[in-house]
């Protein structure tokens, strides 16, 4: 996935930052988008990423720089699973239409319909199936990479992916949603 600039932020460098501000500014947009897919709610997504980055900042000096991408993805997914455990999946049981003011395509009825259909389909998955789906079809990770993020075996990833994919393919609203002609979006490629 490409890193996106976040021009509005002001990376106020401090002595113990050691590159954290630059990392956070670059990673924030893509992390929020991933969290949006994991949570289905824009505010939950931003809260989740903020919590994740805070924990990463707390351990920043001990995180190997060569593993930072894996570390942050793993932290994001794990924090989401913890959030769901605390809330007992109540939030995911109710599909939420994200705040329209923040939509770049707000007002486009067909587009909103498709996005709602996806959120409904994702809400029917287990948290781990959903994470595997997001990591595979949005983050475009390999099964090996997903297994590393989720700290599980490749067989478990395959099982989650198979069941998650089958659920998405057969979900009545997602299957019925019209697919407009559009080139493959670059955000799904690393």
């Amino acid at each position: 996935m490409p890193h996106e600039p976040a021009a509005d932020s002001e990376p106020e460098a401090t002595a113990d930052d050691d590159g954290f501000a630059a990392f956070a500014v670059a990673a924030w947009p893509r992390l929020v988008r991933t969290a949006q897919l994991l949570t289905g709610d824009f505010h939950e997504a931003e809260d989740l990423v903020q919590t994740t980055l805070a924990k990463v900042y707390g351990r920043w000096r001990r995180v190997p720089r060569s593993e930072i991408e894996l570390y942050v993805r793993r932290a994001l997914v794990n924090n989401n699973l913890s959030r769901l455990r605390r809330k007992r999946v109540a939030l995911l049981l109710t599909p939420v239409l994200p705040e329209s003011l923040r939509h770049t395509h707000a007002g486009h009825a067909e587009h909103v319909e498709q996005r709602t259909a996806l959120q409904e389909a994702l809400a029917d998955l287990t948290a781990r199936q959903r994470a595997v789906m997001v990591l595979r079809y949005w983050e475009d990770l390999t099964e090996q990479e997903i297994a590393s993020v989720l700290s599980c075996s490749i067989g478990t990833v395959k099982t989650h992916a198979r069941r998650g994919l089958a659920a998405l393919r057969t979900h009545p609203r997602l299957a019925a949603a019209p697919v407009p002609y559009a080139p493959a979006p670059s955000g799904a490629r690393r």
């Binding site: 949006q36 939509h103 393919r169 955000g187």
Partner: peptide, 19 residues
């Protein structure tokens, strides 16, 4: 499915990072 994920992901505009 990939397109649906990308559409959902790019359907939101993240706020500035609350550094």
């Amino acid at each position: 499915i990939r397109e649906a994920f990308a559409r959902e992901a790019f359907g939101v505009t993240p706020s500035p990072v609350p550094l």
